[in-house]
Structure formats: structure tokens, C-alpha cells
Design a protein around this nucleic acid. Sequence first.
DNA 1: TATGAATGAGGCTTCATTCAT
DNA 2: AATGAATGAAGCCTCATTCAT
Lengths: 215, 215, 215, 215
Amino acid sequence: MNVMSLGEGPGLSCTRQRQRLPSDVRVRQILDAAQLEFSERGFAAARMDDIARRSGLSKGGLYAHFASKDEVFEALLTRSLRLPDLGDPPPLQSGTTAREVAQWLVERLHASLSHPDTLATFRLLMAEGERVPHLIDAWHRQLIEPHLALLHETLGRAGAWLGSRSVLLREPWLALAPVVHLMVMQLIFGRVSAPGREAREAHVALLIELLSPRE
Amino acid sequence: MNVMSLGEGPGLSCTRQRQRLPSDVRVRQILDAAQLEFSERGFAAARMDDIARRSGLSKGGLYAHFASKDEVFEALLTRSLRLPDLGDPPPLQSGTTAREVAQWLVERLHASLSHPDTLATFRLLMAEGERVPHLIDAWHRQLIEPHLALLHETLGRAGAWLGSRSVLLREPWLALAPVVHLMVMQLIFGRVSAPGREAREAHVALLIELLSPRE
Amino acid sequence: MNVMSLGEGPGLSCTRQRQRLPSDVRVRQILDAAQLEFSERGFAAARMDDIARRSGLSKGGLYAHFASKDEVFEALLTRSLRLPDLGDPPPLQSGTTAREVAQWLVERLHASLSHPDTLATFRLLMAEGERVPHLIDAWHRQLIEPHLALLHETLGRAGAWLGSRSVLLREPWLALAPVVHLMVMQLIFGRVSAPGREAREAHVALLIELLSPRE
Amino acid sequence: MNVMSLGEGPGLSCTRQRQRLPSDVRVRQILDAAQLEFSERGFAAARMDDIARRSGLSKGGLYAHFASKDEVFEALLTRSLRLPDLGDPPPLQSGTTAREVAQWLVERLHASLSHPDTLATFRLLMAEGERVPHLIDAWHRQLIEPHLALLHETLGRAGAWLGSRSVLLREPWLALAPVVHLMVMQLIFGRVSAPGREAREAHVALLIELLSPRE
DNA sequence: TATGAATGAGGCTTCATTCAT
DNA sequence: AATGAATGAAGCCTCATTCAT
């Protein structure tokens, strides 16, 4: 490469140039790559080289953005810990049935928790949580608690409305458990297949039973 | 091992002798050590050196019993995959209440699944399952299915007896989900603390509700 | 490299800099080092560490260029398997004597086969050939066959010219055998000394006898 | 195994006993095994474990007979360096032809040098000779020199008898070279196939030419 | 910012050798 | 004389990280 070809300014050279992207774009690419690598192999077995290559960078280029493997890992988990958008609780009007409430809840929970990104984070925390205890707390605050709060709020109001006095109203995690169960099964077996319709249907049926008033 | 049992060897108590143990004893020690190391660090980050030292062996000595790290890992999981002893289903006599059945079930499930060994295996399979897909199958067959079968059988009979027509009778995994949920929480947060009494109580209450006949 | 050429670097001559060389230069250095190590010790006893040090590299640096010891070995042999330049066959003009032909041949064969590189390769193939059977074939095709072809061609034409009907014309390997014998002796005894003049003279004398017509 | 079963003397126990053989038998077995292992893999790559197993011994048992790998190697080569029995030189009576002498010689040389044991030793010396320089000398004295002496003597007498004045009479190694060539080819290519008849025939033809008087 | 050769610590594994039995 | 568990020194190879360009 001669001196002339360097001075030509951006865009004019047709030779294969080094790709210089804005930092935030690169960081996003890197974290996307890191998510795949860390999720597939776990922290220790993931290689900076692979993360770099998957981001379209060389190893050295990766280190221009992150000072260490730990830093990438932490940045990844931090990014994954965005507050989920759970939307508004359902309106409870006259005529709202237990089924409607249950379906709304199950749909929300699965949409939020069965998302591949959530699963990947979930798995990383199971496997490597000890590495980042402060992130575990954050995860609990930002993921678990909002969901439990949503459940508590929604089940409470629906229970009152519907006249249920189920234990569910006091222990909303029981309503979350089937989703967690499915997440676990999904992580352990077939990493691809989404949880079946029937499973969700069963979950709905369970909630209906518990929300329905008894004699 | 109490203090007395150390230093009492016949004659040569003080000199550090090379310990020669029968192979099966060593293998047990090694797998115990491996369980700790693999569970604490995951497969990739665990070091053969540490496993060896924890078994009272040199690195080379370890390789007299296992040909590779993978082999230790697999042997460990295989050992952990013993069929659980779930005991007999509960007698359903006249006078048996939903509470009795529910308590019996919850106790069984927690005793079997919250055991530290089971948790360790569970965690390893979550984190490193892709390494040993055949063991995943075995785990499902030998751990999950028997528990589901126990639930199916017991819930079915209890439901018939008690007059319940809950979805639980068709989808026994719903009754397992709270235990799985607790296992997960136990793994992610505080690796030590056993799941609280209240959680078990809530689980029992849930089952009671579902097993009780409705008007 | 003379003394002057050291210490003259621009500005920083004294500090020990990390040497960064283009890949092909390094590869050449590595294979040179490998040739020495493998030839001196054989494949199994040669150490990657030594090859690295001899190339002015760290162990890890070596692996940036070759993925394994086997790969270095194979690359080395492949490099050694260049077709020899045997030059043109001698002109047979009126007046060409058997001695001239014989001397020309013996000189060619020894120049080509007694070369230290050829000897080193020869020895490696004797000792470690089973490791690289495909290279054995290549070696035969690229080294042995051309020499035999040269002999066949040259002896044939010279024999016709000179009126010889020796078995040599049909079995040219008989004319190669003394060189092989000398190579072997050179390898087994004194690894340094070139084969003596007298030996070559004897070889020439042998060929003369066989090329000369008999009554 | 209880104490009684040990005191019963030899021969009475039908349980699998340790095989205790006379030392010289064991040593022979060990060296046979060593010959195979060293020849197949070379010194560095041969494993004491394999030699032991091939001798029907455990590793420890092997060390009861040889103090080290080097000692086994040296003992093996020493055993291989027995003086070959070349038999008596051929009677040269009136009527003996060059063909008879040549055939007798070629047969002797091949019988002695193409023997698998000789080939194995030959190869070991080529590959590992530097390890045992004193044995190289011995090998020369005990194998090469006798053959050269046989050739010198036989060719000398036959040449005188037949009226040849070939260079062969002064440089008997030239008559040995084709055998060496064949040995080398046999070692490098097909480790099994014996050298062909035609090759031997060619060798004979060569000697006949050189032994026959010229006008 | 980006490259990729280079480093060096550290992990897995092998194997000659020792030794209690 | 024999066993086989055990040692420990090395060797191969990996990979996070550095750095000259």
C-alpha cells in the first residue's frame, strides 16, 4: 500500500479497508457476539478470539473496546438487565372472566421470560453467577421482582374481583413457577424448540382454577 | 474423621507415606472431589490439579484412574444419575385428606430434589449439558420421569378419591413446577440456604386447593 | 550477519524489542529450526520449545504459524520435497568416453543426494516415515524416480553409443546403489564427514567397467 | 487371598497366579517385545508400559529385570549384534563359473542382511545411533566388516581364478551396495514385502559382469 | 481504531520411574 | 519376581493480553 492510497480520504479507495465503525455500533456487535459465545460455551470456555471474529474484528480490535474478558462479560449481562416492558395491567371490567385474566398473564410472562435473550441471561446466571454477585442482585431486582409485582398486583385485583382466596394471592411465585419450569426444560433439552402450546394452555387452566371462587 | 483417627497408623505414623488405596475407594474420592470442583467452577474452569489434590493424589495419580477430564466429568454425572428412591405411594384410606396427600407429595419431592447432590447435578446439566447429550436423556429418564410418574399416579388416585378434576391430574408437571422454581432460586441466589418452610407450605396449600373438589 | 549490522537500528538499538516479522519469513526460520531439531533428535524427542527458541520465538508464537507439531513436521518434509534440479543430460558427441559419462553421472548423483538437506530428509523418512505415508509416496515420485529416470536415460544412450549391453541399462538402480550405500554410511557413522573422494572414484570406475563394451 | 493360599507351594493353586519365569526366559521375552516396540516407534516414542505388556508383564515387573529404558535399549542392540554366521567361502574348483560365485554371494548377503532382525537393528541404528555411539562401532566391527571381509576374500579369490581385474576386487563395498539399497527401500516403503527376485537376479548379473574377464 | 504477530502463564496429558504390598 | 497405584517432571497446546505498526 503506497502513501498515496492512504491520503485519499474515506470512500474513495476500492481496496479492502479496515472497517472503522462508530464505537456504539461496534460495542453492540461485540456484545451480540459475546452473548452467543458465552451462552454456547460458558464464560471460561468462550474465547476472546471467537467473540472478536464473530464481531467482524480482530482480537486486537476487540481490546480497543473492552479491556478484558471480564469486562465484556459484565457489559453483556448489564445490557441484558434492562427492565422488561410488561405493559399495563389488564382492565377489570364487569364481565372480565378468570380465563381472560389468566390468558393475559400467561401470555405476558411467557413473552417476557421465554425470549431467547432472557433465556441466555438466565442460563449465564445459573452457570456463572458467582462471578458477578452484584449482577445477580440487579437481576433479581430488575427481572424477578417486577414480574412478581405484576403477578401480585394483577392476581390481587383479579382475586378480589373474582372472589378467589387462593394461596396464589399471597404467594405469587406459585404462578410464576410453571414458566420457570418451562424455561429450565427448554434450557436443558432442545435448545431450540419453543415451549408447546399445551404447556401454556395447562398453565392458563391452572390459574383459572385458582382464580375461580369455590363454594 | 475425628482427631484421634489421625496419627495413629501402625508404627510409622509420622512419616508421610504414599497412600495406596484400592481403586474403587480412590475412584469414590476422586468423584467426590470432582463434584465439588465442577459444581463450583463449571467444567472448563475446573482444574484436574485441584481435583487431584482434593482426592489426596498427584496429578499423575489421578490419571491412573481416569483417562481424561471428560471421563471424570462423565463418570461423575453417571454416578449422580442413580434412580431416586421415592418410596411407596401413600395409602388412601377412608379419612385421608387432601392435606395429607399434598404434604406427603411435597415432602417427597423436596427431599428428593432439593438434596445438594441433586442440585449440583442439576446445575451441571444446565451449564454443561451440551457436553453430554446422552446423559441428558438418561437424566430425564431416571430423574424427571419417575417424579412425574409418581405425581401422575398419586395425583390421579388422590383426585379420584377426593373428587377433584383439576388440570393437575392431566399435567402433573404443574405440581412439580414449584419445586423446580425453588431449585432454580436456590442455585442462583444463596448457594447454601435451604428453601424456606413457608415456600413448602405454599406448595402444599396450592396442591390442597387443586385436589379439593369444587362445587 | 556482521557486527556492524547489529545495534544500528533507528534510535532504539539497545532495547530488546519484540521481533515482528512477516509470516513467510518466520515460517522459513521455523522450518530451518525444525529441520535441525527433528534431524538431531527425531520427531518424538524434538521439543516445540526448542524449535521455537531456535526460531527466536516463544512457544506460543510458534503456534501462531503452525497448529501442531505434526504440522511443522509435515511442512518441513513438504518443503524438503522440492524437485531436484538435475540439469541436462550430457552431450554424447563423437569422442565422448565412458569415463566422461560416468564422472558426469556420479557427480550429479552425489551433488544431489549427498547434500545435507537431502540427507536430513532421507534420515527423517527412514526413522519417521510411518507418520507420513503420503509424503513417502511424494518423496519416491519426486526424488527417487527422477534420479532413476536420469540414470535410465543417460545410461541407455551412453550404452548404445558405447556398445555396452550391461544389466545396468535395464536396472538403473544398480548404478544408484553405491550412492545410497554412502548416504547410509554417512548417516550412521560420522554425521559430518563428506563421503571420500576414493569412494566416488570407485563408483566411477564401476560405471566405466559396466559401460565399456566387452569382447 | 487369605494366608493359607499363599503357603501352599507351587503348582497347587488353581487361582490365577503371578507368572514367575526363569530370568533368562523373561529377558528374552522382554527383548523380543522391545525389538517390536522400538522398531515400530523409535526410542523416544516407545513406552515401557507397552514393552511390559507385550512381554506379559506389568510395568513394575519389567523394572525387576532392567533398571531403565536405556538399559533395555542397549541390551536389545547388544543382543542384535551377534556375529552373523556367514558359512564357509565357496570352493573354487575347476569348472566353477562366475555365475556360481555370484549366486552364492548374493544369496549369502541377502540371507544375512534382509533378515527382519537385521533390518530392525539397521533401522534403529539409523534413527537412534547417536544415543549409543559405542554400539555403532560394535555394529560396524561385527556386521559390516565381516561381510566386507567375506566379499573381499571371496571376490579376490574368484577374481584371481576367473581372471577379473574389476574395481570390485579392491572396493568390495561396491558389491554390498545393492543389498544396502534394497534394505533401505524395504525400510522406507512397504515394511513387509521382501525384496523381489528380479532385484536379486539383477544383483547377480551385475557381479557376473564384473567377475568375468574382459578382453 | 484496527491488525495480527508475539508473549507467557497455565492447563491437560504422558510416561519413566518408584515403592508398598 | 511381580503388581499396579502413585509420583513428578516434562511436553503439547491454549488463550487472555500486549504491542509495534
